[in-house]
Computed example of a mutant assay.
Amino acid sequence: MAEHPYVGMWVTKDGQIRHELLPNNRYDEARGERESAYQGRYQVTGNYIEYWDDTGFTADGEFIDGVLYHGGMVLYRNKE
């Protein structure tokens, strides 16, 4: 299966939320000083993303013009 173009690190403008989409369809989200605050699996279909957190909650989001809109957050691809 080919890697989708959204794999990588996504961050809020203030850098407090760091959301890494891993190539194995897992994600790891850090919040502030708390590394790995949330982890789980995800699936990308076109520009739509669905999340299933390891603790049981679900979420979704959408990629629009290179920006990830997820759970009321706006995340940008980390260029570093």
Rank of each mutant, 00 (worst) to 15 (best):
V74L: 09
V74M: 11
G61Y: 01
A59D: 14
K13D: 14
V67F: 00
D14P: 08
P5A: 14
A2T: 13
D14V: 10
M9S: 13
Y6P: 00
I49W: 05
H70Y: 04
M9P: 06
V7Q: 07
E35L: 12
D60E: 13
R34W: 04
A2I: 11
V67Y: 00
Y27N: 01
D14Y: 11
D65P: 00
H19Q: 06
I17P: 00
G32V: 11
Y42G: 11
L22I: 01
L21P: 05
E35T: 11
V44S: 05
P5V: 08
R77H: 08
V44G: 06
K79I: 11
E33C: 00
R26Q: 14
V44M: 12
N25S: 14
Y76V: 01
T12Q: 09
Q16Y: 12
N78D: 15
K13W: 06
I49R: 00
W10L: 07
G32S: 13
H70E: 02
R34C: 08
Y42R: 03
N24P: 05
D65M: 00
E33F: 06
T45S: 15
R26S: 09
L21T: 00
Y6C: 01
E29S: 09
S36T: 10
V74P: 03
R34A: 12
M9H: 10
A2W: 03
R31V: 14
L75E: 10
W52C: 04
V7W: 03
I49N: 06
A2P: 15
V11F: 02
R77A: 13
F63G: 04
M9G: 06
H4A: 06
K79H: 13
E80N: 12
A2G: 09
L68C: 01
F57L: 08
Q16S: 11
Y51I: 11
T55Q: 13
R34I: 15
Q43I: 10
G61S: 07
V44N: 06
D60G: 13
A30R: 02
R18N: 05
E50N: 10
Q43H: 12
L68I: 03
R26W: 06
M1L: 09
R34F: 13
D54R: 12
G71L: 10
V7G: 07
M9E: 12
A37G: 08
T58Q: 11
Q43R: 12
A37I: 07
H70L: 05
H19K: 07
I49D: 04
T12K: 05
W10F: 08
G40T: 09
